[in-house]
Amino acid sequence: MPKGTDLLQLNKLACVKGERLLFSGLSCEIPSGSLVRVTGANGAGKTSLLRMIAGLSEPAAGEIVWKSQNTRLSRSEFLQDILYLGHASAIKDELLPAENLMANCTIQGEAFSAPEVHAVLEELGMGERLDVESLSLSAGQRRRIALARVWLTHRPLWLLDEPFNALDVKSVEQLCLQISYHVGEGGICLYTTHQPVDIVSNRQLTIPLDAFCQPAKAQSDPSVLNGLIL
């Protein structure tokens, strides 16, 4: 399980989408064992922040430091420590659930044996759907295949973008338990959600994106606008 010394630092992050300055000057320290909820209105940049931390998109300014190393410089080590789940559940219609999960895990650099995978899928209530192509599965079931990696992985840093979407009550509970177990073991989990969920954790943080997005300030101080957008 993740070591206790991992530390994620965000220094003065800024994000620009097209010409819009979503947020700027976002700095915070996330020690191991903390559960971080990213809040903000629609379009405030919640998904953009998670994608930026994962390295999918480049910050307009600022840097992300993991284990005191800039993630853009030590890219492949950082990628071996994170689990990123986006809105789309990265499931191929033509493949069986187990094939999908095994392929995704191995490509991400974490191989698991077939029994392990089957055990997790059964635990998530996919037991009788194992021999069915993913095409005919419901959105909730496909979401559970994507989330199955949360039960398999040993990685310290989780970035979950709206993981509770399309999940039934039982799955939401199972996921909350797994996240609190992960955080309890010293892991870090950043997540966004629109529905109220209670995840037990002794170190809870929130990143309110609306606080870091001051259009007035950006407007009055052209250098911010110039430097970032033009």
Partner: peptide, 10 residues
Amino acid sequence: RAAWLQHIEP
């Protein structure tokens, strides 16, 4: 476009 977009921040 940049200046105009900033005015309509949510």
